[in-house]
Design a protein around this nucleic acid. Structure first.
Lengths: 206, 206
DNA sequence: GTCTATACTTCGATAGAC
DNA sequence: GTCTATCGAAGTATAGAC
């Protein structure tokens, strides 16, 4: 008995192929033909499951942001000290980036370009991530363990170094650059410890 | 008497048009036709002055890096305290970004993409910028006013937030996003003061 | 749901006249 | 140095058979 010609997982095959390809080469750098080839799917099927290239892209970004938002919200609402929550926020961010390497890469590319492919719906998801951070910050300020800072400046100080390091690792991945002193290998444990320390000192009340 | 048909400034017109356009839309997002139109120059003239699109791009990036490298090297070699040099490094970086808005934007885009358009010659210029920072750091460590840190981690902590904020400002520039809480206006003076404070605290020996 | 074929557009680059 | 015209490749999207 022959198996059904239907492939119920066509959509997810397209989805995963798009996620990795977009992260690697950006929105403009990936053609729909590329995605079809990676997913082992006919190109017309992509247009059957998604309205167009942009809708597919937004689906990928939105899905990632939902995961990250849920993860950091859980940390913000857990029952430890604000300082510990901050440490865990940083740690979780780096660990998520290890599990889904395309997530920080894709987001970094997008925001560096001025986020031309994101709509307000996507920004609402981003806001949840920032909101979790701001919640931790406010809790610490109320408790008197954090000083008063503009939340976005504090967020910038934490996320900026993490994203910059993602970019550094990506640049180092190109053959022939490994020996450049800029691209020394920095273990993620060191990165996490350093950002945690810098964040804690930044927020110390004096 | 008719003026000469020659336009000795054709090359620089192309150069400036390319700089702003590449920063705004990235390498792939700008066509040679676009540059020709902005510069009010015939497209074939671009290929007369530059080998190809990539060579033009690298010329733009290289020129910017030369300027920044010279500026920060001057600071590193000046005769003030390491702490003051660090403050001035941060201040100068933001001020240069104001004078030539396309510089940080373009660099951020490029490194976010994994720097696929940069060659080793360009990395040598980048290294000069990082080298100036590392020199300030080492001087402070020798003097005992800075703690021991991996230079690239320290650099990341300073540059990361600055570049992240550039991206934030660019995203906020799109109509309809201004009212989003993520995109509150942060005066550059506040940004500078905040990063200076965070950097100083990060490097405090304890 | 799946595939082939193709219409339509944009882009990088060059040939060759002046 | 300057310009016109154009080639050839690549990309998005759709029409329409099965």
């Amino acid at each position: 008995m022959k198996a059904s010609l239907k492939r119920p997982d066509t959509r997810s095959a397209v989805f995963e192929a798009a996620a990795t390809a977009f992260a690697e080469h950006g929105f403009d750098g990936v053609s729909v033909d590329d995605i079809a080839q990676i997913a082992q799917v006919n190109k017309a099927m992509i247009y059957y499951h998604f309205a167009d290239k942009l809708a597919l892209y937004r689906a990928v970004v939105g899905d990632m942001l939902d995961s990250v938002g849920a993860a950091v919200t859980e940390i913000a609402e857990s029952s430890t000290s604000p300082t510990d929550k901050l440490d865990r926020f940083i740690d979780r961010f780096v660990r998520l980036a290890e599990t889904r390497p395309w997530f920080p890469t894709l987001m970094l590319r997008e925001i560096s370009a001025g986020a031309p492919h994101l709509d307000l719906e996507t920004f609402a998801k981003i806001r949840i991530v920032f909101g979790a951070f701001a919640q931790i910050l406010a809790e610490g300020q109320t408790a008197g363990v954090f000083r008063s800072v503009q939340p976005m400046l504090a967020y910038t100080t934490v996320i900026g170094p993490l994203l910059f390091n993602v970019a550094r690792e990506r640049m180092a991945a190109v053959p022939g650059r490994r020996n450049l002193p800029m691209f020394v290998d920095i273990p993620h444990a060191d990165l996490i410890a350093h950002v945690q320390l810098a964040a804690r000192r930044m927020l110390e009340p004096r």
